[in-house]
Simulated assay, not measured.
Amino acid sequence: MTVQDKQESPLQPDAPVLLDVDGAMTRLGRKEWIYIKILEQFVFDYSHFAETMGRCLAKQDRKGAERLTHKMKGAAGQIGAEALYVMAPALRQMVATQPTEVATGKLAEFEGLVKQTVAVINSFLVSKGIRTDLGFQPLGEPEMIPQAGLLESIRQHASMGRFSRIERIIDDLERKNCNYETFCVGMRKHIRAYDEAAIAAYIDRWT
């Protein structure tokens, strides 16, 4: 199954299909249940992509915005979202080279394509009997959270864009004590999105 709707955009005329299900399924060895989980995760991670990008641009954090578009390209390629996969590098180049006002304008156009792609994904999930109106279930209360000093260290690393350093801290926490698992799972979601504000808010929740 390939969703054949094409979308025109100033970022990339004659854009490819929104969702190539057959191609993605082939790459996954026809394991539909895995594909469904990946699609659900994509919707969870990228439905608010433009908002996160907008925060980066507002802070003149071009490196952070470039990282986000790079991750979007990888995620889009994995699920067969061909139009997003093709357009993401163009958006990344604009973010890196154009004035913030221009990049913000193009981001608004890109956001429209993200929404269309998410809508197609949700339609596919519904066709497989998956409810899309429930969202992901919230994480439960952590059994244990790091000490205040370590939380502040994570906050500082996030403010400087040191997301790989935060991930190493989380890895170390999980190795030391399995009771940190719930906290670490929640933190990893924000690390993957390179979302400094979400990391800070997550820390505030437990302090």
Rank of each mutant, 00 (worst) to 15 (best):
F183V: 02
G23T: 00
G112D: 07
E174D: 11
V118L: 01
L113E: 09
I170D: 03
E109D: 14
E141K: 15
D204L: 07
K37V: 01
T2V: 09
R192T: 14
A197G: 00
F49Y: 11
F163G: 02
S153V: 12
L134I: 02
P138F: 02
Q98I: 11
L113V: 12
V17M: 13
F136S: 09
G77S: 06
R192D: 15
L39V: 04
R27Q: 06
Y35F: 01
V17N: 11
V185P: 00
C184R: 08
M53E: 10
A96E: 08
L68K: 08
V17I: 14
Q60W: 15
P16Y: 00
Y85S: 15
N177G: 07
Q116Y: 08
F42S: 03
A198K: 02
K6T: 10
Q78M: 14
P89V: 08
A76D: 01
S153G: 12
R205Q: 13
R62M: 07
K37N: 09
A119V: 02
C184V: 09
G74I: 07
I34T: 14
A103C: 12
M144K: 14
Q116V: 10
G140Y: 03
F124W: 14
D20F: 04
K115R: 14
D14E: 15
G77F: 07
L113H: 06
K115I: 12
R131D: 14
K106M: 13
Q147R: 15
I203G: 02
T2F: 00
